[in-house]
Simulated assay, not measured.
Amino acid sequence: MKLVAVSAGLSVPSSTRLLADRLTDAVRDDLADRGHTVEVDVIELRALAVAVANNLVTGFPPPQLATVIESVTGADGLVAVTPVFTASYSGLFKSFFDLIDPEALTGKPVLIAATGGTARHSLVLEHALRPLFTYLRAVVVPTAVYAASEDWGSGGDAYTQGLPARIRRAGGELATLLAARAADPGPEDDITSFEKQLSDLRVD
């Protein structure tokens, strides 16, 4: 089973990369508890910025970028994490996914996440990232994870789960979808409807 994380962080070190690592660890740990082994590949878009720009202009990806695109489209599941710029995903993040064939992510389980300086930008997950991957026909897990600067090290309160709990919950949801895909039921099997699967993932 292969899990790919795409991180669009620009700084070094990057909180976006840190969040991507925490999320992939949560997915891997959950799947390990279910008896599955997972190969994780984290892609840093920062190192591919020039190649992405050249591809947009020429229409042809250089070999390194072509390999990365193949890794993303060939993965069993995807974790996509972007920093927030001007109340939306970064230009580098959007430019990269503009290079993905619109049909290539159809049915692929995706966990979306974002980082920012303030919690005021958390709705970027619902008004920008989720519509993007819905357009690409991916299966986006119910829980999206936003990490503001103040969230790191926070345990939450009586009304809001802390960042570690949200990471575990989202990772568990993606792990559930990946484990279901790994089972690969035949057409004669009794397959639960997608809506029922998602409702089972939700926590009351």
Rank of each mutant, 00 (worst) to 15 (best):
D101N: 14
S90H: 10
D76I: 00
D184N: 13
T82F: 03
V84P: 04
A179C: 08
D204T: 11
H121L: 06
A5R: 02
R28W: 06
D204W: 06
P109V: 11
T160V: 14
S149K: 05
L23H: 11
L23E: 03
G186N: 11
L19V: 10
S193I: 00
E39Q: 09
V52Q: 10
E195A: 14
F60R: 15
L56M: 15
T37M: 03
S149W: 01
H36L: 07
R17S: 14
S11Y: 05
T86W: 05
A66E: 15
L136R: 08
L132R: 01
S122Y: 05
R120D: 09
A144H: 08
E173W: 09
V72K: 06
S11G: 13
V27C: 07
D41E: 15
T73H: 07
D41T: 15
G156A: 13
V81W: 00
Y146A: 04
V57I: 14
P142D: 07
T37L: 11
F96P: 01
L92A: 10
V6R: 09
T16C: 04
S11V: 07
A179P: 03
F194D: 10
H36P: 00
L56T: 06
S122C: 03
T82G: 06
A8E: 04
G156M: 00
L45G: 05
A80D: 01
S88C: 04
A20Y: 06
E188L: 13
A180F: 12
S154M: 08
P13F: 04
P102A: 03
T106V: 09
V140R: 11
L78Q: 02
E150P: 00
L10V: 12
H127E: 11
R181M: 02
D204K: 14
P13K: 11
L123I: 13
T58W: 02
N54A: 15
I43L: 07
A147T: 03
R34A: 08
L19W: 07
L105R: 04
L136T: 04
E150F: 03
A180P: 02
V6S: 05
A158Y: 00
L65K: 14
T118H: 14
A104V: 07
D29T: 09
V40M: 08
K2Y: 03
K2R: 15
A20G: 12
R181L: 14
A66L: 09
R34V: 00
R166V: 02
V81I: 01
L174F: 08
L123Q: 09
V110G: 04
E126D: 15
L31R: 02
F93S: 04
E103Y: 12
E70P: 00
G171W: 02
